Computed example of a mutant assay.
Amino acid sequence: MKTLTLSTHYPRTILHCIQDQKGLCAEFLSDAQISPSVINDSRARVPIESHVKLYQKIAPYINDESFGYLEHPLRFGTFAIACEYAGTAETIGRALEKISRFYSVVTDDLKLDLQIVGKEAHFSIKLRKPELDKVFFLVETFLCIGFRLSSWLAGRAIPLKFCQFSYEPVENKNEYIFLFPCEHRFAGTGPNILAFDADFLNFPVLKTASDIRSYISRAPADLLNKLVGSDSFTNRVYAVLSKKDCDDAQDAKTVASELAMTEQTLRRKLRSEGSSVQKIKDSLRLDSAVFHLTEDKYTIAEISEKLNFSTPSAFSRAFKNWTGVPPEEYRNR
């Protein structure tokens, strides 16, 4: 696996704040190596590292880490200080409490909360004016912080139970399989909740101040990288399939054998994370296809063969189903 991709939904969510400055948009997209011709195509993909470059250009320029989705800006550097503050905690529970307390001091526009409900811990975000966050950028961001920053601090993935969202399924919902490997509840109302085993709150924070500085310098890469939290079953299957070059012979039975479990157990565990072997295989193939098409090193037929499609036409049909355009058109954008 050469690169990881994500929906163009994500760069669009951060470009909106400078959309009236056309020349500047083009400059930022060029620096991030994102083609302007794909940015408004909801089914197109971009490399995660390109989105990270775009984020790292725009956030300091506008001096707002909320990208205009709050009534008042979150000044650039806010997340860095929050990470440093959380890193001084002894346990993950205390780290989440520190993050929640920090943002309550910085802004009145959002509230983070950590509650114990039976044997579960519920980390939630509530926006004072949710109508400003029409694309749910902040909800996704802070739930990712709750899951992925905590997992990184602990050196292992947080055992998610479910994620509840106060909105209906969104255009980028397929990304949630990796962002939040658990059951997804699109309630359409109510709180936005990340639920996990409360025992995790007692896990120690393992990262040093030096580790945290490195994490901050990469931000938001680790909040988006599919392989962060790699001991989720979704990512374990992704890793197995990556080694096999998307071989069609790698069905649920053979993957289960690789992971030393029954096929039924594998399916059940993936289902609990809102995933399946086929969904993961499609995601892996899409990431690989986008990389090779962007790299422009192989022909369509050669890419088809590398991804183990029976024919180039079968690859073209699958790619068009994933992205809305055939691979030739995607390459020429």
Rank of each mutant, 00 (worst) to 15 (best):
F291Y: 10
L270D: 04
E273N: 05
D296Y: 00
L266E: 08
L270R: 07
D296T: 00
L293A: 03
E273M: 06
K297Q: 06
R285F: 07
I300V: 05
E295F: 00
A289S: 05
E263S: 14
F291S: 03
A260H: 12
Q278L: 12
K279C: 03
L270Y: 03
L266S: 05
L286R: 11
K281Q: 14
V277L: 10
A301R: 01
R268N: 14
S288V: 03
A301K: 02
L293N: 00
L259E: 00
S276R: 05
L293K: 01
K279F: 09
F291D: 00
E302T: 04
L266R: 02
L270V: 04
K297L: 02
L284C: 00
E302V: 05
L270W: 04
K281A: 14
R268D: 15
K279Q: 10
K279N: 12
K269P: 13
L259V: 09
T299G: 08
K279W: 02
A260E: 13
V277C: 13
L286F: 08
R267L: 13
T294A: 10
D282A: 04
I300M: 09
I300T: 04
E273H: 09
L284S: 00
L286W: 04
L259F: 08
R267N: 15
Q264V: 15
L259M: 12
R285V: 10
E302Y: 10
S288T: 11
V277G: 04
K269G: 13
E263C: 15
R285G: 10
E273S: 07
A260F: 14
R267D: 13
T265G: 10
M261Q: 01
S272L: 13
L284Q: 07
E295A: 11
Q264C: 14
S283M: 10
D287T: 07
Y298M: 11
E302Q: 09
E295K: 02
R271E: 15
K281M: 14
R271A: 15
I303F: 02
L270S: 06
L286N: 05
T299H: 05
D296G: 08
S283K: 12
S272G: 10
K279H: 09
T265K: 15
D282T: 03
V290T: 04
H292Y: 11
T294G: 09
